[in-house]
Design a protein around this nucleic acid. Structure first.
Lengths: 341, 341
DNA sequence: AGAAGTTACGCAAACGGTTTCGTGTTGATA
DNA sequence: TATCAACACGAAACCGTTTGCGTAACTTCT
């Protein structure tokens, strides 16, 4: 690493004190016009940039925010990251992204790693394993250490902090109601294990819509797939042994897979079976037919999460205001070819 | 932020000096057994973690590596990130990811932001705009400041540094040769603007295979699409006005779109037209039919890039060894339904 | 018992900044 | 001419760690 230019080196060259240089660069009124110009010109010439670590150390603020997400494969999370980055950068913060890979261990490791002074706070979405184990001591530990946390999407009631969620229940209700208005009666739900809070919310909306329309809930019409390894045979059996004319899927991947399978069995979409998925990702946009899907507005969710976190960080215990907020992002349904419009 | 436990606070509580605490925690032989145990127990009890910023400042090494990539939507980049993260974490490094969003400005901004002492080096893939402008002063600037850089995938000959690339030319040659062996003669190439080095390499392989089999190159069979906004009408016209029985696409998105369009026009895949794409992402895996594609082994590419960078960082100018390496990752073709196997 | 060697620890500088406070120099005011 | 702001700048403490070196107390040897 080449010799970096520091306040000290500038001071030496210009034969002034370090504090003078520091103040001159900040345009402090304490410093005379000539000196200021001299210093600023020199700094510019040699491309001086203050050392972040030194500033962080001094201020006890890193201007970094840590983002820990389960995966980066799902389009939804990538859009959230964009939103976070956008808001954070605009406000002078950098984003450090860590991927828990749906693993509890890795999530703990990531938190440990970042909580040594690398970040001012965290934005997180829980890993599958964490939700399954229902174990949040690592989060509590971090909060205890005084770090603000914002949870988004995959959240839990067991942790008190700011949260950003989708109106999952409501939008599922809307989707299913829409199926019903379209004259469909045998509406299936393809979801994940129930420890995912979002899946549970979506299931709730599904059930509400059925109940409200006096359609009895048929457990046979609910298919639970593993979040990582989907068993195609199981899916095939599901559609073979049930009479189904509409399907709500909790993500676009499940929807895409199911659409492929039912089409292979000669069903027409949306005439025989209609599909609605979640996440407006590339799968939805380029599947055959295009998938009607719930846009989760990840960008907006990310921006909201970043705003909540940065607000929390900046008020720096001004008011140890324990009134945590939960902001709800309103999803919208994008009509495409997999439903009759 | 709650009062953090520091060396100083431990020293105060235990009535020893700061240096004693520091040494005790490092198991230094300078410190007596009892004192060591006392300090270590206390530190453990209060969950002491050394402040990263202070260490970075002291050591002039951050143990962070900066990753600047054009996008996070493309599956390929997400796998590379995984590879980088995996290798880096294993070697005690954290990864800071920034997204240039294919923008030159943002790329410059990201480099600026991270080069203030936040990272020890960079792993990058060039943004589309940067490649289009063919302007690399920001990279040169960073290198001048003494930062090691590793470029991957989207690289340039104008910058001297370590690089990791795919054998794009070769694998394209293989793919096209395969088409030819399969009896196909009218082989199209669907690619991007030519300022993408990877597209150029792939085009080169395409042309080589044709030449070697005495198939005249027909410029009409080469379709250039914009990397962000694809004009479906243009694609439709392309396939309508040319007799085509095989298509090599430089990414999976183009392939998926094209497959959708030709199928809408009644062509059977792979019987009438065969497709090979690049990137083994979800689109390839769940398109109809499944797309035969070039697996770029992003994980491996990421690991390689991380290894090159960390090696470079750790030898810390030991030898100002200017012999930059370019490592080539061998792609492989995954046979799926879009080609006759 | 005095010299020499160990042992166990503390002091202080350094990393690169920020910021408070003190001070020498000016010019204006009484 | 003595007094006093205003101005322009420097000294030094501090953020949390690391580390070379100094040294008091205790052992050991002769």
């Amino acid at each position: 690493m080449r010799q970096k230019v520091t306040l000290k080196s500038i001071a030496r060259e210009l034969d002034v004190s370090i504090s003078t240089v520091s103040k001159a660069l900040k345009d402090s009124p304490e410093i005379g016009k000539e000196t200021k110009e001299k210093v600023q010109a020199f700094a510019k010439l040699y491309n001086y940039k203050p050392n972040n670590m030194a500033i962080s150390l001094k201020n006890k603020r890193t201007k970094n925010i840590g983002v820990v997400i389960p995966d980066i494969i799902h389009h939804f999370f990538t859009t959230v990251i964009r939103g976070i980055e956008s808001y954070a950068n605009k406000h002078g913060y950098s984003v450090i992204i860590c991927i828990s890979n749906e693993s509890y261990e890795k999530e703990v490791f990531n938190l440990e790693m970042l909580s040594n002074g690398s970040v001012d706070g965290f934005i997180m979405s829980l890993s599958a394993e964490t939700q399954e184990k229902d174990d949040f001591k690592h989060l509590k530990e971090i909060i205890n250490q005084g770090f603000p946390i914002v949870l988004f999407d995959r959240v839990t009631d067991n942790i008190e902090c700011d949260k950003v969620v989708l109106n999952d229940c409501e939008i599922s209700y809307d989707a299913v109601s829409y199926f019903i208005k379209d004259g469909r009666k045998n509406i299936a739900l393809v979801t994940t294990e129930s420890y995912f809070n979002v899946s549970e919310e979506r299931a709730k909306g599904y059930k509400m819509a059925l109940a409200e329309n006096n359609i009895p809930l048929d457990q046979n019409l609910i298919l639970k797939l593993h979040y990582k390894d989907q068993d195609e045979q199981e899916i095939t059996n599901f559609f073979r042994s049930n009479k189904i004319d509409a399907v709500l899927c909790v993500n676009e991947l499940f929807a895409t897979i199911c659409m492929g399978i039912v089409q292979d069995h000669g069903f027409k979409i949306p005439d025989d079976i209609a599909f609605v998925g979640f996440t407006d990702g590339i799968l939805s946009r380029y599947s055959k037919p295009r998938l009607t899907t719930v846009a989760q507005h990840g960008d907006q969710m990310g921006e909201t999460a970043a705003r909540l976190l940065i607000d929390r960080v900046e008020q720096e215990a001004a008011v140890e205001d324990a009134s945590y907020k939960t902001e709800v992002i309103k999803a919208s349904i994008l009509q495409r070819g997999s439903t009759t419009n």
